[in-house]
């Protein structure tokens, strides 16, 4: 743990990313208390306001405070991203573990299934889900999770296959250790590193996914402010008030970049074999 922290904060790129992520998380958590206005509050006397002392990032087409909406958006983005990541991990890890460990027909079925899922355009899936379940936070979470599921299963399976060949695992198998002992005592702990890396890379995927689906009107619905909803709202005013489009986009890009940078850095730490 100390080693990991030292690694992360010892290099400029990962240190800055970790800082950005901490700030993002902090804003998301304490959002309601630091938000200058109610993000849904409409002030028709202040429509399309420029940044000012009262509204640091200006106001939108309904006179809502952009900063407050950005803060609410951070909260929802993080929630969706964490939920997506958790859902994916909970489903993909056992499947990948079992497929990689037992191999045989089970592995064949899982691998072929993964191939088919990888090929399928996730957006069609998300659109379908949105129509069936109705557009909502849950829809976004489930569709993003389904989209990345095959990637993660593939990664876990690959790791397990290579771990299986290591001496301590084959030794345990030969010693007649019980299956769940091998899976949970020998294999799972060794997956921690790669899984931390993957989780770090799943979070930005969740953030991007939420923004995209909400932008298309398939995700979170207005008036709830998420970064994707804000972008969708701003699109008609792209010509007259470009700032409304730019601010949430920058928020998405910066947070996503921070997670990606951190993920790449952690990969160096946990998986030095990868050519980088």
């Amino acid at each position: 743990m100390v080693h990991t922290l030292r690694f992360v904060f010892g290099r400029p790129a990962t240190a800055v990313s970790a800082g950005v992520i901490l700030l993002f998380a902090a804003v998301a958590v304490v959002g309601p208390w630091i938000s200058p206005y109610d993000p849904g509050h409409q002030d028709y006397s202040a429509i399309f306001g420029s940044p000012s002392g009262a509204h640091l990032l200006g106001t939108d087409d309904l006179g809502r405070d952009v900063l407050s909406r950005l803060i609410e958006g951070a909260r929802i983005s993080l929630a969706v991203a964490l939920a997506t990541t958790a859902l994916v991990l909970v489903v993909a890890v056992p499947i990948g573990l079992v497929a990689g460990y037992y191999r045989g027909w089970l592995d064949v079925v899982v691998s072929r299934g993964v191939d088919v899922m990888l090929a399928f355009p996730y957006i069609i899936l998300a659109v379908g889900l949105a129509v069936i379940m109705g557009p909502s936070l849950l829809t976004v979470t489930v569709s993003m999770a389904v989209a990345v599921l095959p990637w993660l299963i593939r990664i876990v399976r690959g790791e397990v296959l290579s771990l299986r060949e290591r001496e301590y695992v084959s030794g345990a198998v030969l010693d007649g250790a019980r299956t769940h002992t091998i899976l949970f005592r020998h294999l799972l702990p060794n997956l921690t590193g790669p899984l931390i890396v993957q989780a770090t890379l799943l979070i930005p995927f969740g953030i991007l996914g939420e923004a995209l689906l909400s932008f298309l009107g398939l995700g979170v619905q207005p008036p709830t402010a998420t970064w994707g909803v804000m972008l969708a709202n701003a699109q008609p005013f792209a010509q007259s008030n470009p700032g409304l489009s730019i601010v949430p986009g920058i928020a998405i890009a910066v947070v996503t970049l921070a997670f990606n940078l951190l993920g790449d850095g952690l990969r160096d730490l946990f998986d030095p074999r990868t050519v980088r």
């Binding site: 792209a238 890009a253 970049l257």
Partner: peptide, 18 residues
């Protein structure tokens, strides 16, 4: 490259239009 995968394409599209 990292920026390229971090920027949402639809937002990039908006910025390019602007």
């Amino acid at each position: 490259g990292l920026a390229g995968i971090s920027v949402p394409s639809f937002w990039l599209a908006l910025v390019l239009v602007i």
